[in-house]
Design a protein around this nucleic acid. Structure first.
Lengths: 207, 207
DNA sequence: CGGCACACGTGAATC
DNA sequence: TGATTCACGTGTGCC
């Protein structure tokens, strides 16, 4: 019996067949002695499977140059290379993004350059000075690392300890913040100059 | 003349040949009448080229299941699908990263949730009130959007206009900041209540 | 042994 | 027409 084969690829091809090749008659071996190779059918199945694989591969590759078996594989090769490069580039970009959006970086972008480092470079150190002025009033001078909202937090904390500021003044420069103010102790003026200094020193550690 | 062919793929294979197939003798057509199909050599070249393509494709795919022609293509297919998914995922991650590291986001991460929006939700609006108290002193009340360092900037700007604060108080709640203070005009008290209010309104716009 | 995978040479179809 | 591509059936080696 003769085997009338449709173009294997053409049958399932969704993008258009290889070429418009039609089915072909093949020489039958029945006429000579009825012999047929045992693996004839197996070979047909194998070819069919291979063609289908090739076809699905074709469907995955977007760039179509030609519908040849060879160019299908060729395109697949270039496409894989493209994808590999894409993955590489994207991975690099992602790593860069992750590095630049770390907490460290955010801090820097908000506070400008690192205040602590700038202070070091300029030879400025944190400092607290407290001295008496008229009566029960204290005059304080605090140098601390410049931070956004630092002054507000400082005032909050001082208020928590009953320290009320009058005639306060804030200046920031070279990564440092200088606060001078007059202070009245609210707890019946029961803090000495030294105690106040120690208290303030503790406070600015938490700013 | 007979054509003794080595396994095409086996010859150039760097990962090991398909199978250990040896060369084979093919039936020569010289013995019958010296006929040879014209495209015999062309076909040989074609097959060789195709096998080489298949081989380079094989070299690109990292996962090796089997060295069959079919499985080569199969692996290539799954590999391409993997790469595609990788690209997709990476692209998504990158977009997410870009979105989350925009200025808008940084602001939010620094200030907590969006202060402006919270104020809206709570029905709080920016406001400036100025009124006279004893003599040449003014009492002011300012409601503005809460921002890190906002109070410090406010005081800086007010100082620029010669406004000195005494008995100032700051409270923040629901995305808003409430500042109350006593003010003394430094320019010879030459600002009326209304002028001071307008000045403060302008100032808080730039905070 | 049978099944499998392959390369081969060939006729046919397409450009 | 000539060049190229394809599917086919087969022989053969390997497991």
């Amino acid at each position: 019996m003769e085997y009338l084969a449709m173009n294997e690829l053409g049958l399932a091809d969704q993008h258009g067949s290889f070429r418009g090749r039609m089915g072909r008659k093949r020489t039958s071996y029945d006429e000579t002695g009825g012999y047929k190779s045992k693996n004839l059918h197996a070979e047909r199945r194998r070819r069919e499977k291979l063609s289908n694989r090739l076809l699905t591969l074709r469907a995955l590759v977007p760039i179509i140059t030609n519908m040849n078996k060879g160019t299908i594989i060729e395109d697949a090769i270039t496409y894989i290379q493209e994808l590999k490069k894409n993955v590489e580039v994207l991975t690099d970009m992602l790593q860069e993004m992750e590095a630049s959006s770390s907490e460290e970086e955010i801090k820097k972008r908000v506070n400008g350059i690192d205040a602590s480092e700038e202070m070091k470079q300029c030879g400025i150190k944190e400092d607290v000075q407290v001295s008496n002025i008229e009566g029960d009033k204290l005059w304080i001078k605090i140098i601390l690392e410049k931070k956004r909202g630092g002054f507000a937090r400082l005032m909050e904390k001082m208020a928590c300890f009953g320290l009320e500021l009058t005639d306060s003044n804030v200046t920031t420069s070279k990564g440092a913040m200088l606060v001078t103010a007059c202070v009245e102790g609210a707890f019946g003026d029961n803090l000495t100059v030294q105690q106040t200094k120690e208290l303030l020193t503790q406070i600015i550690k938490g700013i």
